[in-house]
């Protein structure tokens, strides 16, 4: 469906995306990365609004921006940018007419599409009077009204309240159930995770990882997992964990909270109760977030940045580490 061959996009001296090699078959993908990581650049390369400085992009076998591929693509930008003085119905009808539909077809489809997103009552009102959620629904309606094969959404959850997020999430899950393709960019990981299990991690214009959650987890088998422990005696506990060779590094989160990095988290879970009993250390909470996408994302980002957290910390005496 989408192919990137050594694609680099430069904005003058600034790199938007850097040597991206990627082949995506039809399906649903979450594009994850922090602000400025290159997500929007990547999406704009797919929609043909940007041209690669190096390399080549193919969308459905054609160059991006080709009329035939645009006909099968729906795009929902990350910002609103709709005319305030026209109604949602007029706006969607107009975009359908630009898409090539006759006026009567466009009006019929616009009405159906706005109805699907629950905008029937408000669709004749000017967009300027819409709430954020209503504008988001209108954007979704314009992107799907022509029944595209591939839907691209840039940060669709931005600024939405919980109900709006839930509704958009439901719409997207419905879209996937129809067998349609989807690329959704976001930095809200749990919401993307709730929609699709396949994702692309991008940071600093580079693709860090791609594939299913399991595939990315497999990349992390040799990566230390993190366990955050809140305790009344963090320094003493850190010394014990290092002396017992249960951890590979310790990081101070706050005066009464440490994060331990380990390749064998189960060993800590087994030994910790007896150790804290033996040394009369009070532990108020213990948390491992290793199964979440957030943890995976953070770890990959640190690896990408070359942040050797665990090894660096391991080589330091606990006293020195404590002052970091």
């Amino acid at each position: 469906m989408i192919e990137f061959r050594h694609v680099t996009k430069l904005y003058g001296a600034v790199i938007g995306v850097n040597d991206i090699n990627l082949e995506l078959p039809p399906g649903a993908y979450g594009l994850l990365g922090p602000n400025g990581s290159g997500k929007t650049t990547l999406l704009n390369l797919i929609t043909g609004q940007l041209n690669p400085s190096l390399g080549a992009v193919r969308v459905m076998g054609r160059r991006p921006g080709h009329a035939a591929s645009l006909r099968r693509l729906g795009f929902c930008p990350g910002y609103e940018g709709m005319y305030a003085n026209v109604s949602g119905f007029e706006w969607v009808t107009y975009l359908l007419e630009l898409h090539g539909f006759s006026r009567s077809d466009a009006r019929r489809r616009a009405e159906q599409s706005l109805e699907r997103v629950g905008m029937t009552d408000a669709m004749m009102r000017p967009i300027g009077g819409y709430s954020r959620g209503m504008r988001q629904r209108t954007k979704f309606a314009q992107a799907t009204a022509h029944d595209p094969d591939l839907l691209i959404l840039d940060e669709p959850f931005n600024g939405l309240d919980p109900i709006g997020r839930h509704d958009i999430g439901e719409m997207l899950r419905g879209w996937i159930r129809q067998g349609k393709s989807l690329i959704i960019s976001s930095h809200i990981l749990h919401e993307v995770e709730a929609i699709t299990g396949s994702f692309l991690l991008i940071y600093g214009g580079r693709l860090l990882a791609s594939g299913s959650a399991q595939e990315v987890h497999s990349l992390l088998t040799d990566v230390p997992r993190e366990i955050t422990i809140a305790t009344s005696s963090p320094r003493e506990l850190a010394q014990i964990l290092i002396a017992e060779q249960l951890v590979e590094g310790i990081r101070w989160e706050s005066p009464d909270c440490i994060t331990a990095a380990t390749r064998h988290p189960l060993n800590i879970f087994r030994r910790l109760p007896e150790l804290i009993a033996e040394h009369s250390i009070r532990v108020t909470s213990l948390r491992s977030s290793d199964d979440s996408l957030q943890s995976m994302f953070n770890t990959l980002l640190r690896l990408r940045r070359g942040d050797r957290f665990s090894r660096a910390a391991r080589s330091q005496p606990v006293e020195e580490a404590a002052h970091e």
Binding site: Q49, A67, L70, F75, M82, L95
Partner: peptide, 16 residues
């Protein structure tokens, strides 16, 4: 303005 991407992703949208 920010309306451009809505229009430019239509077939021949820029020309139109």
């Amino acid at each position: 303005g920010k309306t451009w991407p809505y229009l430019a992703v239509r077939p021949h949208g820029r020309l139109i």
